[in-house]
Amino acid sequence: MEIRFPIQLKKLRTGLSMSQEDIAGKLYISRQAVSRWESGDATPDMSNLIKLAEIFDCSLDTLVLGTEPKQDNIDDKIDKWWVAIPLVAILGGTIPDIIQAFK
């Protein structure tokens, strides 16, 4: 399995024009610790991973794995509504029933 965290960390950090020192200051750790994370020689604990995700305003999946969150496809939701409305009408349901069915 390819280790993506060091690559993602550096990419996200440089994308915000932050130095290793900037990240270290926000986490109250040494700059050398951030350097070791970026080189793959060490990994942060869970609390620092969470803080990093907050700093970079990204998910843990994005930070650790480099994956982007899936976007909701509005067309899929609209298609579901057009199918549900006639079915509920036939079965005698109401709009609140339809809304509840999709929760």
Rank of each mutant, 00 (worst) to 15 (best):
Val64Thr: 09
Gly93Ala: 11
Pro69Glu: 08
Gly25Thr: 06
Phe5Ser: 01
Gly40Trp: 02
Thr43Val: 12
Ser59Gly: 10
Phe5Trp: 09
Val34Cys: 04
Ile29Trp: 13
Tyr28Leu: 07
Ser17Phe: 01
Phe102Val: 02
Gln100Phe: 10
Thr43Cys: 13
Ile55Phe: 10
Met1Val: 02
Cys58Asn: 13
Val88Glu: 04
Asp41His: 02
Leu16Met: 15
Glu38Trp: 01
Ser35Leu: 05
Ser47Ala: 07
Glu21Met: 00
Trp82Ile: 12
Asp72Trp: 03
Asp97Tyr: 07
Gln32Val: 05
Asp79Val: 05
Ile95Glu: 09
Ile98Ser: 04
Glu54Leu: 02
Val88Cys: 02
Lys51Phe: 08
Asp57Val: 05
Tyr28Glu: 14
Ile85Arg: 12
Phe56Ile: 05
Met1Thr: 14
Asp79Ser: 09
Met18Gly: 00
Trp81Phe: 14
Ile50Asn: 08
Ile23Lys: 07
Ala24Ile: 00
Ile29Pro: 03
Ile99His: 14
Arg4Gln: 11
Ile95Val: 06
Lys70Arg: 13
Thr14Tyr: 01
Ala84Met: 12
Lys10Pro: 02
Lys51Thr: 12
Phe102Asp: 05
Ala42Gln: 09
Ile3Val: 10
Ile95Ala: 05
Val34Ser: 08
Val34Phe: 03
Thr94Tyr: 05
Pro96Glu: 15
Glu68Cys: 04
